[in-house]
Amino acid sequence: MPPIKEEILVIDDEAQMRRLLSVTLESAGYSVTLAENAAEGIRNAETHRYEAIVLDLGLPDSDGIDVLKKIRQWAVYPIIILSVRSSENGIIEALDAGANDYLTKPFRSGELLARIRSALRLYTTSPGGSKFFFSGIEVDLEMRVVRKRGEVVKLTPTEFSLLSLFIHNAGKVLTHNYILQQVWGPKFEGESQYTRVYVGQLRKKLEENPNNPSFFVTESGIGYRFTLENEK
């Protein structure tokens, strides 16, 4: 019995991109539905349950962000957005509106597939127990203790809140404002120096090479991603 194919909805107005995406995704074993504009995309999403959506931000009939917001009202599955370079604001807005990840065009197909896999894995695996392990580091979320190769690493309360936010959203891109709101509170919106300083602290304490981080990765101009893909 062949495995059940995971269904993905692709919303893009460019025929070429749609064909390319469908070929790439189908060759990786997904079943693909195509929509060429916002209206069709929303209609599809309303009538069928997908495992994930790939959404282009530049749609002719409606703003991609609006489509995202509408679908997010009921859909909890991953939504990955596509965008062109030099539109960081759009990406940040989309991430804040609930997108799970983003890709800028031109992208490598391998990258796209990796992002989809990662998003799906996060979505299907519930956050495990109170302990979290990565690369010789043990984080006890309940006891608020971090050990690196058995040795306790001292973290300030803010650093620990930030770390646990990253762990709960592993693999996902978090915008500066999202992190600020979750860790510091709504008054700190726009004060990105806080996230930068504290992420720097975490890197210093937890990364093997803080100048070339493997886990706390910067997303240029957008925010941070805590990723385990580079785990050695």
Partner: peptide, 21 residues
């Protein structure tokens, strides 16, 4: 920039796909 980038994106992504599959 959209008109220029879209076809290039398609070529890059497609050729990259061909190399990896």
């Amino acid at each position: 920039s959209h008109e220029l980038r879209t076809p290039i994106a398609a070529i890059v992504s497609a050729s990259e796909g061909m190399l990896t599959l």
